[in-house]
């Protein structure tokens, strides 16, 4: 039967039927490797990330790569047109994606992309938010929780300052109050966790199949 890995990071979602499941899996791996490499390069540029132990760097990246990619590629989800453009450049309609098995997650991914887009983040805000997504001290397996927490706090403080600065009108002296935009942005973190869990379940089902 046809094997389909309907992931936007997959160059060939419709697998060659002559290939074995193992070969299809390896092709998929080759498709997303450049994107993962970019996430690692991004992490290396987060001030303080390289000072963490190598195991903690790996743990954060293993746990957070999907979430970083979801933020980075959320613009591939066209809410208005109800389409998703894969990294190959191919654009698929909702019906096509559902037929490819991308059903349950799809709505949640569109919803996330839409909500993130409404915040109209600048590239600087998006970069800092992505760093906050990656540096989460509550990922399981972190060895030096204090070090990761410290870095996480620094990043959240910087993001808070940046977002509040661009949102609060000049002359407004409510320095202790966060802008609704910042609050909404932080609320995207649990949304990303939920998507990450759904994605993991999807991967498990593929592997078991």
């Amino acid at each position: 039967s046809d094997i389909m890995l309907a992931c936007p990071m997959n160059m060939q979602p419709h697998a060659d039927p002559s290939k074995s499941p193992q070969e299809i899996w390896e092709d998929f791996s080759l498709s997303f490797t450049p994107a993962v490499k970019e996430v690692v390069e991004f992490a290396k540029h987060i001030p303080g990330f390289s000072s963490l132990t190598q195991n903690d760097q790996v743990t954060l990246l293993k746990a957070g790569t999907f979430e970083v990619l979801m933020v980075r590629f959320s613009s591939l989800f066209n809410v208005k047109e109800q389409t998703v453009t894969f990294i190959s450049g191919a654009t698929y309609s909702l019906e096509e994606l559902r037929a490819m098995g991308m059903s349950e997650m799809l709505g949640a991914m569109f919803d996330f992309s839409h909500k993130l887009a409404t915040l109209e983040l600048s590239s600087e805000e998006l970069g800092l938010f992505t760093a906050v997504v990656l540096v989460s001290a509550d990922r399981s397996g972190i060895e030096s929780v204090l070090s990761v927490e410290q870095l996480q706090e620094n990043l959240i403080r910087a993001l808070r300052s940046l977002v509040n600065k661009s949102t609060v009108a000049p002359g407004n002296n409510h320095h202790n109050m966060d802008s609704p935009r910042f609050t909404k942005l932080l609320l995207k973190l649990p949304d990303l966790r939920t998507l990450n869990n759904m994605h993991s379940e999807k991967l498990l089902s593929f592997r078991i199949d």
Partner: peptide
């Protein structure tokens, strides 16, 4: 199959990229 990230070979890719020697994986 308790760890999807390991199933994907993600850890291997990440470790190599962190060390700056990510090479083309053989097909």
């Amino acid at each position: 199959f308790s760890d999807p990230a390991s199933n994907l070979g993600l850890e291997d890719i990440i470790r190599k990229a962190l060390m700056g020697n990510l090479e083309e994986r053989p097909e």
